[in-house]
């Protein structure tokens, strides 16, 4: 088990708040993607024409377009959050030692 007892959290409050703010912004993107998928998919579900690359528009939208955008966003999030995590850790170390 990792011991964090002696960490003075108040000392890093500003750094942590900055981390949380950035993370909250990213979370908004995840929620936006959920909204993009569900109601819009519902809207286009009644319009199966035109065909795109031989696919009905609705199928193209829900099977190719939105999932790939979402996956790309999740990949970006993974990369960005690891980078952010390391940056914040670096700042905290600067403050402690």
């Amino acid at each position: 088990m990792v011991d964090l007892v002696e960490l003075d959290f108040e000392k890093y409050r500003d750094i942590i708040e900055e981390y949380k703010r950035k993370r909250r912004l990213m979370s908004a993107g995840v929620i936006a993607l959920i909204l993009l998928y569900l109601p819009l998919a519902s809207f286009v579900s009644t319009k199966i024409e035109p065909m795109i690359f031989g696919w009905p528009f609705y199928a193209f939208y829900s099977i190719i377009l939105v999932p790939l955008i979402t996956l790309a966003y999740f990949l970006f999030l993974g990369y960005y959050e690891v980078k952010l995590d390391r940056e914040i850790a670096e700042k905290m170390k600067g403050g402690v030692r």
Partner: peptide, 22 residues
């Protein structure tokens, strides 16, 4: 049909993966 695919993939990609994220 596609309603099944949207239900399953939408459920997994958006809800399950978001849950992982949060």
């Amino acid at each position: 049909g596609v309603a099944g695919y949207v239900a399953i993939l939408g459920m997994y990609l958006f809800l399950t993966c978001s849950m992982y994220y949060f």
